[in-house]
Amino acid sequence: MARAVSFYKALGFRIVHGGANDAFTSFVLGTSFLNLTSETHNPVRFWGRGIVYVSDVDAFYRKAKAQGIEPQFAPRDAPWNERYFHLTDPDAHELSFARPL
């Protein structure tokens, strides 16, 4: 959890519950929420992508890079009318930062 808290705080997420020494932490960024757990009993195995809307995708991309976080690709416009980029957190969860065009 400590590694995840450090990563998300570097991106500007604010902790609203829990923290580096807790098994459950809830973050907020704008109007988006992210909940993480480090509990290992009865693990759920699935894949997904968290999508966080930000006001300026390119500025958020630059912020991630300035924090030493390497996105998967530079921001781009998608045919589904979003500008977005992806990155992967330290535990291999994929995140998309986007805004509608």
Rank of each mutant, 00 (worst) to 15 (best):
6 S>E: 12
60 F>Y: 10
41 H>G: 05
67 Q>M: 13
38 S>Y: 00
21 N>W: 00
98 A>T: 11
43 P>S: 06
41 H>C: 05
44 V>E: 15
100 P>G: 08
101 L>M: 07
68 G>T: 14
21 N>Y: 02
53 Y>H: 11
41 H>D: 12
71 P>I: 12
59 A>P: 04
17 H>M: 13
12 G>Y: 02
40 T>L: 08
20 A>N: 05
66 A>K: 03
95 L>G: 03
54 V>L: 10
21 N>A: 11
60 F>P: 03
29 L>E: 07
31 T>C: 01
75 P>S: 11
30 G>F: 01
41 H>T: 07
11 L>T: 07
49 R>N: 08
27 F>R: 11
26 S>I: 11
101 L>E: 04
56 D>F: 00
18 G>W: 06
58 D>N: 13
74 A>Q: 14
49 R>Q: 12
23 A>V: 02
90 P>M: 10
64 A>W: 05
38 S>M: 06
88 T>D: 08
17 H>W: 10
31 T>A: 09
92 A>C: 10
29 L>K: 15
23 A>R: 05
13 F>N: 12
42 N>H: 10
14 R>W: 03
92 A>D: 11
15 I>N: 13
39 E>Y: 11
26 S>L: 03
18 G>P: 13
50 G>C: 07
61 Y>R: 06
79 P>C: 09
83 R>Q: 06
2 A>N: 05
44 V>M: 09
43 P>W: 08
46 F>W: 00
71 P>F: 03
101 L>H: 06
35 N>Y: 02
